[in-house]
């Protein structure tokens, strides 16, 4: 497989979905040979190689356990497939690693047709690296966005999780269930950044769902955000609000400076990867975080994350 990186990248660029499983296997690998191939793969799907940003809409969906994310994702998946859109879903499982291993049960909760070649679900365990989404997940999201119409990253949590997801997703959705007070508290106290879309699930619960939705809208207004839509969705049959949610996601994407957001995200990812690899000492070699940012800003906007990391490493070598 280790000679296949560039070829896989080309296939993704040509929107060949069957290249996706092998792509993910490669991106997850840590052997030096595979890392080189990964870089080659990502180069083929960089904005430079694509002649612009990858066409897929990268959507981060996060929320506390039990909020109804899986049911919501099943409903979204069906709706997207009915529109003929292809979907890749990267499910980041929160289960803590014991003895290194992890149980990944997320895909079981998503209801989809196994024979449908337009859907891919991949589960990974969180926790290999603290303070951010695992590198392979971010790289995978970038790569798959070249081939799939929609790329979903599902993570669990309210509070910290979405600050990580914001580095890679075009649109961040926070899902809460009626009566779930955490989101409200986190929003008010500023622990949670304001998401692009807020979803209150289990709208069939009626009163409680309506009140939760109203409280969240009020909290957002008091924080000065008038644009974040708060939607109530019932994913169980008969589904309600799913079409409105899809419309809100579209609206957010079209209303966003996508190229700017992704460029910022790539730079943030590169800085995070570089710091993870070389630590504070690495940052000092560049003259600090601010100087590192300035160095990144000078780079070609068409570069992918590994190329930006390489640029930082060269910069550190020059100044040492």
């Amino acid at each position: 497989m280790s000679t296949e990186g560039a070829a896989l990248g080309v296939r993704l660029r040509e929107r060949d979905l069957t290249a996706a499983p092998a792509t993910l296997n490669l991106l997850e690998s840590t052997t030096p040979a595979d890392r080189e191939q990964s870089a080659a793969l990502l180069r083929e799907v960089s904005p430079g190689a694509l002649g612009g940003e990858a066409p897929g809409h990268v959507i981060g969906i996060t929320g506390p356990p039990g909020a109804g994310k899986s049911t919501l994702l099943s409903a979204l998946l069906h709706a997207w497939r009915e529109q003929g859109r292809t979907v890749a879903m990267l499910a980041v499982d929160p289960s803590s690693r014991r003895s290194g291993g992890a149980l990944l049960g997320d895909r079981a909760r998503i209801d989809f047709d196994a024979a449908d070649r337009g859907v891919l679900i991949r589960s990974t365990a969180a926790g290999e690296r603290l303070g951010g989404l695992a590198w392979p997940t971010r790289a995978a999201a970038h790569a798959l966005a070249a081939a799939f119409d929609v790329v979903v990253i599902e993570t669990v949590g309210v509070g910290q999780a979405e600050t990580e997801i914001v580095d890679v997703a075009d649109t961040v959705v926070v899902v809460v269930q009626p009566g779930g007070g955490d989101a409200l508290q986190f929003l008010k106290s500023g622990i949670m950044e304001i998401p692009d879309v807020l979803v209150v699930t289990k709208a069939d619960l009626g009163q409680l769902a309506t009140r939760t939705r109203r409280d969240l809208s009020a909290a957002l207004r008091s924080l000065g955000s008038r644009s974040t839509p708060v939607l109530a969705v019932a994913s169980l049959p008969p589904p309600q609000g799913v079409e409105e949610l899809i419309a809100a996601l579209e609206e957010h994407r079209t209303g966003t400076d996508l190229a700017g957001r992704r460029l910022r995200a790539r730079r943030a990812s590169a800085l995070a990867d570089y710091t993870h690899e070389h630590g504070d000492r690495g940052l000092r070699a560049l003259g600090g975080r601010h100087a590192a940012g300035a160095l990144l800003a000078e780079q070609d906007p068409g570069l992918d994350v590994p190329a930006l990391v390489a640029a930082l490493e060269q910069g550190a070598d020059r100044s040492s």
């Binding site: 049960g105 895909r107 079981a108 196994a114 891919l120």
Partner: peptide, 23 residues
């Protein structure tokens, strides 16, 4: 190990899709 376990009642097609997609 990392373990993908989806519970009972899977069709051969579902198992094949999981094996492929999960690598």
């Amino acid at each position: 190990m990392d373990v993908v376990y989806e519970g009972i009642r899977l069709t051969p097609a579902q198992i094949a899709a999981s094996a492929l997609q999960e690598g």
